[in-house]
Design a protein around this nucleic acid. Structure first.
Lengths: 340, 340
DNA sequence: ATTTCCTATGCACACGTTTGCGATATTATA
DNA sequence: TATAATATCGCAAACGTGTGCATAGGAAAT
């Protein structure tokens, strides 16, 4: 038997409206009755019926988390799934449930977003890590539901109208390169990705250049190399660009997984890391500790990002201080291990 | 402006009850009006309000997917996240949304399940890969909502009362070992896990023993080794049990990730796989193809499992042919690559 | 003591959908 | 042609919660 506010009202000897108001902390209820009603509710194990609540009050207690992929094909980008776990954790603590939209693809789009909107199933959207189609973005905006973006804001949107939190990838690239330089490297290769759409990798490379400039090291076009973000490409680097590697004393991999592949190949060739060459990765995947040698890497503050985003979306849903946008760009930091 | 069935009724010149019945394919509506109403609904971009629907009709269109971990700490068990992607895909095609309960721990339990139940937010539960607490299991049962288990049924429950689908791990272990034997191996090590709770690994080891028996190879206690399910442990195997490895010509790793670590260590030591030793893994993680050499492994039919489970839970929710339980144990098969 | 004002609560309707039952129109039967 | 049976649809209540408005009661001001 499901217990409703009417059941509570009967026990408390008040009307159901009073129960509703009491449990929602309405100021027009005396603290004495509030307390009594809350006690009864607790002992009766009461929870609001979600459907009824959303029907009348327009709050579902659900937020949609939109992902292109919860993990990529090879499980390489652990960062995104790590972030998801943090997000779910914070939302759970706020009694919010997560409706996960995974497999969202910018090209094909997804009818799911507009369906959720029309069904009025969610209170807000958390867009994680990937760009969403302008059409979807605008239909959310038009519905009036809040959006928090955990990624660079898409190019088509006015920055002023979106709440977002992400990591400064320029700074990440800069710090990583600086770290290598301070460790004595002078000819530093950076391995970026072949995903030319991706602004974040462009930023990492720009940061790399800036660090070189800061230390008066001339930039060489050859030392920026684009490779798939895969273990395989890191592993094969010796075969792909042998002559370049011969004159390099440090590598900044813009993805951990590439670095893992490279470390493995280096061991086979008897190249000693960090003695002969220093290596730094990006993302601080948990396996970094287990690499051989353990991989120095750039850590994005995923827990903090998740916390900020969750607090923000909940505030926006509650319509608290939402007069202006919240936008923060957090700094990454270097986790020093044994590969540098 | 949200469009409701009343809006459609106004346009169609009928009552909103007729619209409701027409869109729900009630037999008491003529096919002419049905068609007309459905057309109007489509052009007006109508979707049922989820809250109202669940209030009256008791259907939310949500199903809870319960996970202990969507991926483990080291991203090693890609199987579970792969399975999740399949699940979500099938559920999406049935217009069901997924409320993901992740981070469920059997010891600490989770208040979320009982909260979802009392809030009446979901129509059913898909329990993936991990055991759930008896208390949670029973409160779901008691609520009358259907459960489909994608794992061995928990010990405390009568098998007759639960729908489940999973892979035959005994057969997996047997096939893997058979494969090695047919490839000429005679002294086969199997590396299991230290997780003693886990029935599925016990089954894999039993299958291993059975295969030995089938081929008249004597079983040796020493050749069953329990190690963490991690890359690290596979990598360090040479240091942990050197004397055992010296006399072994094949290894059945009960987890791919252990095999990856071992392959890496083998390369460093100049041990040629599959020439000097043959190696088989378990789970068919996507990176198997990229290992060096590509890893032969046991594939669990995750897509089929997901499909069966999703179809079943939807049927149960719709109260179609739910007089008896559906229980299937699927067979795994070997994916032959270059490590054997 | 009367009036005024506020506090605390109840009444009744609304939200969008489903559904039992009754009403009407249509067709078949005698 | 009158009646019965059937197909089609509308009315109204219900699901559980939120909330504007009215009101009862009490305290404070006159």
């Amino acid at each position: 038997m499901k217990v409703t506010i009417k059941d509570i009202a009967a026990v408390a000897g008040v009307s159901h409206s009073t129960v509703s108001r009491a449990l929602n902390d309405s100021p027009q209820i005396s603290s004495a009755t509030k307390e009594k009603i809350k006690d009864i509710a607790k002992t009766m194990n009461f929870e609001f019926n979600a459907g009824a609540r959303s029907l009348s009050g327009r709050k579902t207690g659900n937020i949609a988390v939109v992902y292109q992929a919860i993990h990529d094909q090879f499980g390489s980008s652990l960062y995104v799934s790590q972030l998801f776990i943090e997000l779910r954790h914070f939302l759970e603590r706020m009694d919010m449930d997560v409706i996960l939209l995974e497999g969202y693809h910018p090209e094909t789009g997804s009818s799911n977003i507009s369906r959720l909107l029309r069904q009025q199933k969610v209170d807000g959207f958390l867009i994680v890590h990937d760009l969403i189609k302008q059409r979807d973005y605008e239909s959310i905006k038009q519905s009036g539901l809040p959006i928090v973006q955990l990624h660079l804001p898409p190019v088509y949107c006015q920055k002023e109208e979106l709440d977002y939190f992400f990591t400064d990838h320029f700074m990440g690239g800069r710090l990583a390169t600086e770290h290598l330089i301070k460790r004595g490297c002078r000819r530093i290769l950076t391995v970026s990705t072949t995903d030319s759409e991706s602004e974040e990798f462009r930023q990492r490379t720009l940061g790399y250049k800036q660090a070189l400039k800061d230390f008066g090291i001339p930039f060489e076009e050859d030392l920026v190399f684009a490779a798939d973000s895969s273990y395989q490409k890191g592993y094969n680097l010796f075969r792909i660009i042998p002559e370049i590697l011969a004159n390099v004393d440090g590598i900044f991999f813009q993805t951990d997984i590439q670095a893992f592949g490279f470390l493995s190949a280096a061991r086979e060739r008897g190249l000693s890391i960090p003695h002969d060459m220093k290596v730094i990765g990006y993302d601080d995947a948990p396996i970094c500790e287990l690499a051989n040698p353990p991989l120095t890497t750039v850590h994005q503050p995923r827990r903090k990002l998740a916390e900020l985003a969750c607090e923000r979306i909940v505030d926006l849903i509650a319509k608290r201080h939402n007069e202006s946008r919240h936008q923060e760009v957090l700094f990454p930091h270097i986790v020093v291990r044994e590969s540098t």
